[in-house]
Nucleic acid binder design. Sequence first.
DNA 1: CATCCACAGGAAGGACGGGGGT
DNA 2: ACCCCCGTCCTTCCTGTGGATG
Length: 369
Amino acid sequence: MLCPALAGSRTSNIFIYGKTGTGKTAVLKHVFDRFSSETQKLGRNARFVYVNCRLLGTEYRILAALATAFRVRVPFTGLATAEVFHRLTSALAKRPGTFVLGLDEIDALVKISGDNLLYELTRINESLPSSSVSLVGVSNDLMWKELLGPRVLSSLSEQELVFHPYSALELADILKQRAQHAFRPGVVSDSVVALCSALAASEHGDARRALDLLRVSGEVAERNQSDVVNEKHVRMAQGVIERGRVFEALTSLPLHSRMILASVLLLTRRGCDVTSGTVYSAYKDLCGLLNVEALTQRRVSGLISELDMMGVLATKLMSFGRYGRTKKLKLLVPVDDIASVLDSDEVLSPLLTHPPPDVRSRPPLNTPE
DNA sequence: CATCCACAGGAAGGACGGGGGT
DNA sequence: ACCCCCGTCCTTCCTGTGGATG
C-alpha cells in the first residue's frame, strides 16, 4: 500500500484494525523502517513518522510530536494548537516530498478531543503544493469508526487492513522461534510453550502477552534455581506479570487518585458499601487527616471515571428510585495488591496500617441489595 | 402519574505556569 | 519588560436521569 512512496507519489490513507498484541504496531514500525531506508537509497525525500496518540495524550502533544519529527521546534506549552499546526504545515511546504504519518492508537485521540485534528490532517494536502501527506491510522477498537464524522471517515479509510488475533497454534510458533534464541536447548519444553500460548490465546490472542509470559517464566525458573522451565513457573509468572502491571499503573497515579483508591480500599475492608457518595466522604476525611485540600465531588467523579477506564475499578450505575442514583464501585484488582502498593506510599501508608477509628462513611443507604 | 433522591456528566470559566511578539 | 494567548487542571453551576414512592 505504501509503494507509491517509492516512486515519490502520494499513498492512500490507510486504516488498520486489530486487537492488542496482533502486531499492528510492530508491523507499522517495521514497514516504516524498511521504507525509510529504501527511499533514502533511492534518494527520495520521504519521511515515515510514527506517533502513539494514547501515550501523547492530547491533540496538542500529538501535533507537537509530529512537528518535532520534522525538526520544527515547539515548546511543550504556550502555543495555540492551531499555531503548531500552521508551523508544521509551513515546514512541510518548504521541503517537497512524501510524508506518511503513522498514528497509533488513533481511537484514543478521537475519544479525547474529537476528530478535528484528523480532519485537518486529511486535508493538509490542499495547502501543500509540492508535497503529499498521507495517514496510517491504527486502532484496536473495532467499533471506534462510529465516533468519526463522515467527512473524516471517507478520506481516512481509503484502504483498510484487519489484523486478526493469533490462534494458540500461531502463538506457539512464535514462541518456539523466540525460545530458540533466548533459551538453551531443552530448557523450554513444548508443553510449556503450549501452555503459554494457550493462556495468551484465551486472552484474545495477544502475542505480547505470550512473549512476556515466556520471558517471565524463564526468570521465575532462574530465580528458583531450576534447570528447566515448567508449567508451575508459567503459572507463577502469570501472577508476577499481573502484579507488576498493577504496581506500575498504581504507583504512577497522582496523589488524589491514590487517595480515592485508598478510600475505596478502606470501605471495602470495612465491608461498607462502596458508592460514589461514601467514597467521596471517606476521601474527604482522608484529606482532613493528611491536611490536604479536598477536590470537589465533580472532580472526584471524573477521577473515578478515569480509574474505571484504566481498569482498576469497575463502576456500575445503580438506581434506588426514591433513594437516588449512585455508582457502585468495585476493585478489579485483588485487595491485597492494592494494599501493598499503597503501603509503599509514604504519605498514605500510615493511614492504612492504623486506620483512625472514625474514617467513616455516611450511614449506608437503607435499601435492599 | 408526578415527585424526588443522589448522584452523573456537560459547559463555562478561573488560576497557573509557560509560551510568542514587540 | 510588557501584554496577550495557550493548555492543563480544577471549580462552579447546571441539567439530566432511573425508578421506588406518594
